[in-house]
Design a binder for these strands. Structure first.
Length: 319
DNA sequence: AACAAGCCCAACCGCCCGGCA
DNA sequence: CTGCCGGGCGGTTGGGCTTGT
């Protein structure tokens, strides 16, 4: 990807290295994202806060689903885009595990082109049918949905305007008008809020079980040793090493089976303790990397083991 | 096999908004 | 009320990868 470079502030730009990922994951899972601008300094990263935030949200955070889009997901994107336009973040809340950036990319690279292609087809087909009123649609693999065709879809569930909109029980897409936009958007935002709550539960209130962590070393996910059966979660994602069977399509909480809930050693408590009791300078990474908590001297398995004993670690680190 | 063109996506950029002093 | 700051969002791009010739 992008060639690493440095801006005039001495901050690194470009592709993230596994080591940087490891530092970011270690810091955010332990302390949370309390301040993205300050975070890279304390996490030992020569990156701007924005870059860290983006990397975490789009790539490193748990429960990110990667790989091919299902027909249902594409259908959802198309329908929501019809209603909301380029509100990628809102659309993303209806696709668990997908990020706004990924959806946006998928739209621009695949769905948009398909839309334009089919729109042209629709236009020419309509002209043809006008000239021949008894004409029928010859393309049986394409299902028309408010002017859009879902290529290769074998599910006719969304094809009829009279069908209830699966995404908005109160209002079908055919009934939706621009004047309803604000009200309808509020409904979406309410859903978005609830889903955000779910996301927060998955990303901040649980941590990866030690057992699965030890079974799947983090470095494997940057190489070719990623489990081949894990399709719903990005194999090379450092935080995707919860049980490969734990993520079930259309099951937002399937992965939780492999994650143990935090009781008394939550990151929030660790954060409160660490940040309130220790001066900031003590949280700055050590100059000598071999002594740093986030250094490569620690295997990631050790890292997660250490995290599980964070209180002991805190004592050891800051004494 | 070598090259070109197009595709894909991670990452960056700049703007906007909300919270706060 | 105003200005600052941090976070969030949508648009854009760089460059690796894939496919076609």
């Amino acid at each position: 990807m992008r060639t690493p470079s440095w801006d005039n502030r001495g901050l690194k730009k470009g592709t993230w290295t596994p080591e940087e990922d490891r530092k970011l994951v270690a810091y955010v899972t332990r302390y949370g994202s309390w301040n993205w601008r300050q975070l890279p300094r304390f996490a030992g990263l020569e990156r701007c806060g924005k870059s860290c935030r983006l990397r975490w949200l789009n790539y490193l955070r748990p429960n990110i689903k990667r790989g091919n889009y299902t027909d249902k997901e594409e259908e959802t994107i198309i329908k929501l885009h019809e209603k909301l336009g380029n509100k990628w973040s809102v659309i993303a809340t209806h696709l668990p595990g997908r990020t706004d950036n990924e959806i946006k990319n998928h739209w621009h690279t695949t769905l948009k082109k398909r839309f334009e292609k089919k729109a042209v087809y629709t236009e020419t087909n309509e002209k043809a049918s006008k000239s021949n009123s008894s004409g029928s649609n010859p393309d049986k693999d394409c299902i028309q949905n408010n002017g859009f065709f879902l290529e290769g879809s074998h599910s006719p569930t969304v094809s009829k305007a009279s069908d209830p909109d699966p995404l908005s029980p109160e209002l079908s897409s055919s009934e939706f008008s621009s004047s309803d936009y604000t009200t309808h958007q509020n409904l979406f935002l309410q859903d978005a809020y609830l889903e955000d709550m779910n996301q927060n539960i998955s990303t901040e209130s649980f941590h990866i079980s030690q057992v699965t962590t030890q079974a799947n070393g983090i470095d494997n996910f940057h190489g070719s040793d990623a489990p081949k059966t894990m399709e719903c979660v990005r194999p090379e994602s450092p935080l995707s090493y919860y049980n490969e069977n734990s993520v079930v399509e259309n099951d937002d909480f399937g992965f939780l089976e492999a994650i143990e809930p935090i009781t008394e050693h939550s990151w929030t408590e660790a954060f409160v303790a660490d940040m309130s009791l220790f001066p900031n300078e003590l949280l700055v990474p050590l100059v000598n990397e071999s002594e740093s908590y986030f250094s490569c001297a620690y295997d990631v398995e050790d890292l997660w083991c250490l995290k599980n004993n964070s209180h002991d670690l805190d004592v050891n680190l800051f004494q």
